[in-house]
Design a protein around this nucleic acid. Structure first.
Lengths: 191, 191
DNA sequence: GCCCATTGCGCAATGG
DNA sequence: CCCATTGCGCAATGGG
């Protein structure tokens, strides 16, 4: 959605009502610029790991409302427009073009691109780690379940043994007594 | 990297060596086009969830080598250039511009953008689910550990009881018999 | 104020 | 041909 252009000189086709809720600042001109050699300063490693370099992309950016908000130019090519109010003259705008050609701008972009690449790589790694953690935990879980099973079995065996023993006592120690008045060896608690 | 421009009509500033390792296909003109209202056909829901709509971005695309490979135009605005060989005349190129303005192209882009948004949303969701899974498994683990602890304790208590009982037997059932010839009530297996 | 990190977004290539 | 996924660059924004 974000796309909107002011100086569209052709191709109006069917729609294009030029709605633009923010009629303010708009870029008109649109030279090609680019072709930057990119000094690759900074860390200058130019890893180029996942290099595809598939396409040459030129991006023409118009700072519409962002500038109208009179914010700081941030990374964007020092937006000298937006004098204070909003919606400046729809004339000269090749200015921003120059900004994009600026050495500084390209450097900033380059650095940001690296940062982005790094960030994404980390993000992906983190995701993989999390998945790995899931697998580990699942394994651990199975181990624990098995142990529980074992312990339970052991416990039941021991209890049975106990019971049996009690019976033996009842049978051997007090064989004559059959009326059930025997205090011990009652219904064994199966707990 | 990829960026390069040919038809910059003004503003050359300092650098701009116009290197271009791929002298082939290049876009020159650079109208603003855009302002596309985007019919939002297809599903036309226009969720606009994370809407920022921060900027209007025009992208001028040159299909350098990809076209030289004489591949199918894919999504790119039907690249009629690349007759067969490579590196075509650096002249007319407003053609591709028209392609980008094409209704079809915009529709394809729009659909792709939606697909991308959807895909990313799912991806993010999946990541969150995985994280959630980790938490659940961790909890489950604790539960199991606790259970193991409990069972172990129970088992040890039972064993002690067993032992004690055996002692009692030895002491009460056969107090007179001290020579150890008694068959029963030997050393209880501690197992 | 600058820098890096993160995030949303659009484009294009590619896989299914 | 369509959609899904992925790599990438841009810009906005957050935190130091």
């Amino acid at each position: 959605m974000g796309n909107q252009g002011a100086g569209d000189q052709s191709r109006v086709l069917s729609q294009a009502p030029e709605q633009s809720p923010v009629p303010s600042t708009r870029a008109e001109s649109c030279p090609q610029h680019q072709s930057r050699v990119l000094p690759m300063s900074r860390h200058q490693q130019q890893q180029k790991l996942s290099s595809s370099d598939h396409n040459g992309v030129s991006v023409i950016q118009s700072q519409p409302h962002s500038s109208s908000l009179q914010q700081v130019p941030k990374l964007v090519p020092a937006n000298p427009s937006a004098p204070g109010g909003k919606a400046l003259a729809p004339s000269k705008m090749k200015k921003s073009q120059a900004d994009k050609d600026s050495d500084e701008y390209r450097q900033r972009r380059e650095r940001n691109n690296l940062a982005v690449k790094k960030s994404r790589q980390r993000s992906k790694q983190k995701a993989m780690d999390t998945q790995q953690r899931v697998n580990e935990l699942k394994e651990e879980n199975e181990r624990l379940e098995a142990k529980i099973k074992l312990l339970s079995k052991e416990l039941s065996v021991l209890k049975d043994l106990f019971l049996e023993h009690a019976h033996n006592l009842a049978d051997n120690v007090q064989p004559p007594n059959v009326d059930g008045t025997s205090p011990a060896a009652g219904a064994p608690n199966t707990q």
